[in-house]
């Protein structure tokens, strides 16, 4: 199944409108998820990663958040589904069943008033009409599968009775309940301590091998990306600025922003990674999505800036090796 596309995001744009301003949170984002592969979305806080994933799920806060352009297509076994055109009702049949999602804060992402077993069982009961008892048994099996010891007992526990790592495992179990084609993981390890982080990545990788699901992995931690992803898109100011094969990008970033991110990485996170000068933070602050410049969005912070960067929009151009870079000096940066 190696190269089967499961989810295609094409030219996706998202805006948040309020009376006073329009925030262009995502602009013209395209990528595809392949079965059994992990695609990573990286970028600083506020670059539009979560909004992209919520747009795929059509869970943007209505009425302020709106998909203003582009499409998302799910390639389900029984034919392609244009998610951006589905009715809300049909979309509900996709959420949790074809595309599952896990979030950054495992504590607050689980309902405090229900046992984890019930919350996991709810997915199968809702989508597959499984009986209560059957679904709960399924939940226990899933908890066992994600490595929770004494799963039959823990299924009766409430979220506050579990550690952070166990809660995140429970969230993963919930995501797996209907054997989804795609799992979106929005910073699933950020709130956990380092040893637990590593276990969680290992678990996701294992489950992916087993089920062949595609994973969209969102993070701002490049060390994590190096471990888990086969492809990466780097986002800045709601745009993809560089996209390509993970190893190639780490070896030779072409966009000044990607390069800045790699340079600001502390060396101890991953010793196999080529690290240039340690811990150089990117100067300046993140671009205001409500007042975007006409030219390159990164230009005000860029060391490679030239007058032509600030006049018109910069295209995301492909190089011969199928790497996409949104920079007029990509060849020089490398």
């Amino acid at each position: 199944m190696g190269d089967t596309t499961v989810l295609a995001v094409e030219n996706l744009s998202v805006e948040f409108r309020s009376r006073r301003r329009i925030v262009r949170a995502v602009s013209d984002v395209s990528f595809t998820l392949k079965a059994g592969r992990t695609f990573a979305l990286v970028g600083e806080s506020g670059s539009g990663k979560s909004v992209t994933s919520l747009a795929i799920m059509r869970l943007l806060a209505a009425p302020a958040g709106r998909i203003t352009g582009g499409s998302v297509t799910l390639h389900a076994p029984d034919g392609p589904l244009a998610l951006t055109a589905l009715s809300e009702r049909a979309m509900r049949a996709v959420r949790g069943r074809q595309i599952a999602m896990i979030f950054q804060e495992p504590m607050t992402s689980l309902n405090p008033l229900f046992t984890v077993g019930d919350q996991i069982a709810e997915v199968a009961r809702h989508h597959l009409g499984t009986s209560r008892a059957e679904a709960f048994k399924g939940a226990v099996a899933l908890l066992d599968r994600v490595g929770i010891p004494a799963a039959a007992h823990r299924a009766h526990a409430y979220p506050h009775e579990l550690s952070g790592g166990m809660r995140q495992r429970a969230m993963i179990a919930m995501a797996l309940a209907c054997k989804p084609l795609v799992m979106i993981a929005d910073e699933p390890t950020t709130a956990l301590d380092v040893t637990v982080q590593a276990q969680m990545l290992e678990l996701i990788r294992e489950l992916q091998d087993e089920t062949g699901m595609a994973v969209l992995f969102i993070t701002h931690n490049l060390g994590v990306v190096a471990e888990i992803a086969s492809e990466v898109a780097v986002m800045y100011g709601g745009q993809i600025v560089e996209r390509g094969e993970a190893g190639a990008i780490f070896a030779a970033p072409r966009h000044p922003y990607t390069r800045g991110l790699l340079d600001s990485l502390p060396p101890e996170i991953d010793s196999n990674m080529p690290v240039r000068a340690p811990l150089k933070a990117i100067p300046g602050s993140v671009v205001d999505l409500a007042a975007l410049p006409p030219g390159c969005r990164f230009a005000p912070r860029c060391a490679w800036r030239q007058p032509r960067c600030e006049t018109g929009a910069i295209a995301l151009d492909a190089d011969p090796a199928n790497r996409l870079v949104r920079c007029v000096r990509a060849q020089e940066v490398a």
Partner: peptide
């Protein structure tokens, strides 16, 4: 506005289940 309501919606639950089962009790 809590995260677990987003989780409930991400599970594919409809608005009445989200409101009556997940939100109301909290």
């Amino acid at each position: 506005s809590q995260d677990y309501i987003r989780t409930a919606r991400a599970k594919g639950l409809g608005p009445s289940v989200v409101i009556l089962r997940h939100a109301l009790r909290n």
